[in-house]
Structure formats: C-alpha cells, structure tokens
C-alpha cells in the first residue's frame, strides 16, 4: 500500500534533484527550471501530508506556493531579460559584478 512516506521520499528525491540542478547550473534560465522542480517537489509533500491528516491546509499551502512561483517567474524572467540586454549572456560566471 502506498503510504505518506512514499510521497515524502519521492518529494525528497525530487527536491534533491532540483537542489543538484541549482548547484550545477550556470545558466540562469536553467537555474530557474531547477527551482521550479524544487517548488513542485514541496507541493507534493504538502498535498500528501494534507491528505494523510485529512486536512485542507496542505492544499492551501500548495496553492500559495503556486501563486508565489508564478509571480517569481514573472519578475524573474523580467530581470533575466534586463540582464541579457546588459551582458549578452545569462552565464553566472560572466555576471560576476559582486566581486568582493
């Protein structure tokens, strides 16, 4: 039988995949994809736990996460366009203006 642990472990694995993507990606657009993966992984966990306890709060949180993700994409892509205009590239190694 599929229990909540299954969902949670899957969620953790997906999160780790996203995490790995965040670590290894240098292209900002790809980095965004990786964060989307992580957000979705968390959504699964929320829905699963909500289901397990018979509580709607989990779903509510998932909704808000989706809302946040949508606004993040909207603003983030706008920023990416500005960056691309400025540097002609989306590579993190190129955009290193924060040199200490």
């Amino acid at each position: 039988m599929i229990g909540v642990s299954h969902y949670l472990i899957l969620s953790g694995l997906l999160f780790s995949i996203g995490f790995m993507g965040v670590l290894r990606r240098k292209n900002l657009l790809m980095l965004f994809f990786a964060t989307e993966v992580m957000l979705n992984a968390v959504n699964i966990a929320f829905a699963a736990v909500g289901n397990y306890y018979g509580d709607l709060s989990g779903q509510m949180f998932a909704f808000f996460i989706i809302a946040v993700a949508a606004s993040e994409v909207a603003v983030g892509l706008g920023l990416l366009i500005l960056l691309y205009k400025k540097y002609g590239s989306l590579d993190l190694d190129v955009i290193s203006s924060m040199k200490g």
Binding site: F32, N43, A47, G50, N51, Q59, I66, V73, L77, I81
Partner: peptide, 30 residues
Amino acid sequence: FFFILGADFLGVVQLIVYVGAVMALYSFAM
C-alpha cells in the same frame, strides 16, 4: 499525484498555472 491524493482542484490549478501559464512564459523567454 494531486489527483491520486484527492486534491482535484490543486491538480487542475497545477495544470493551468504551471503547464499553461508558467511554461508559456518560459517558452517566450526561451
């Protein structure tokens, strides 16, 4: 997964918002 978990509405929202809106944005950006 959302449909399996009985969160039908969430699943629909996921499809509309993510697959519909967000991915459309990404494709424009691409």
